[in-house]
C-alpha cells in the first residue's frame, strides 16, 4: 500500500473516528483499556445479539494510531459473528507481530501492516483489539 494512502486513511479515522462517544444502554458490555507503555486510555462498549456483533462504540483519549485503529476495527467487526471477529483479531495480531496472517480478512486494517517498524507504536495499534477480545470472552 502506498504510504500516503496509508497515512490518509489513518488520519481520516483519527480526525473523524467512527462510533466515537459512548451511550448509556444496559444491552452493552463495557471495558476500559489503558496502554501500559503509553498514555492511551479508551473505553469500549459492545452489543451482541444472537452471537452477532450489532454495535461497538468507544471513547477516551488516545494517539492517532489507537484512535484510528479503534475506528477501523469497529467498522470491520460490526455484523460479524463472535467467531469471525475473533479470527479477524487473531490475524490482525499476527500482522502486528510479523507472523503469517490472512490479508484478505483484514480489509482496511491492512493500513497497519508496517507498524512493526515502530515498536513503540505496536501496543497502540493492538489496544482496541485487546479490549474487544476481553469483551468477547
Amino acid at each position: 500500500m502506498d504510504n500516503n494512502i496509508r497515512r490518509d486513511i489513518i488520519i481520516d479515522n483519527y480526525e473523524n473516528p467512527f462510533n466515537k462517544g459512548l451511550i448509556d444502554d444496559k444491552n452493552y458490555k463495557k471495558t476500559n483499556m489503558n496502554n501500559e507503555s503509553c498514555i492511551d486510555n479508551l473505553d469500549f462498549i459492545i452489543k451482541l445479539e444472537n452471537n452477532i456483533i450489532k454495535d461497538i462504540r468507544f471513547d477516551g483519549q488516545a494517539c492517532a494510531i489507537s484512535t484510528s485503529a479503534s475506528s477501523i476495527m469497529i467498522k470491520t467487526l460490526i455484523n460479524k459473528t463472535k467467531e469471525e471477529a475473533l479470527e479477524i483479531i487473531t490475524n490482525y495480531e499476527n500482522m502486528i507481530d510479523e507472523k503469517p496472517y490472512n490479508k484478505d480478512l483484514l480489509n482496511e486494517l491492512n493500513v497497519y501492516d508496517e507498524i512493526y517498524k515502530q515498536p513503540n507504536r505496536k501496543k497502540c495499534a493492538l489496544l482496541p483489539f485487546w479490549g474487544i477480545k476481553k469483551l468477547l470472552k
Binding site: 503509553c38 498514555i39 483519549q61 494517539c63 492517532a64 484512535t67 515502530q118 513503540n120 507504536r121 497502540c124
Partner: peptide, 9 residues
C-alpha cells in the same frame, strides 16, 4: 488537534 504522544513520536 495533535495528541501529545503523536508529537513526541
Amino acid at each position: 488537534k495533535v495528541f501529545c504522544q503523536d508529537v513526541a513520536v
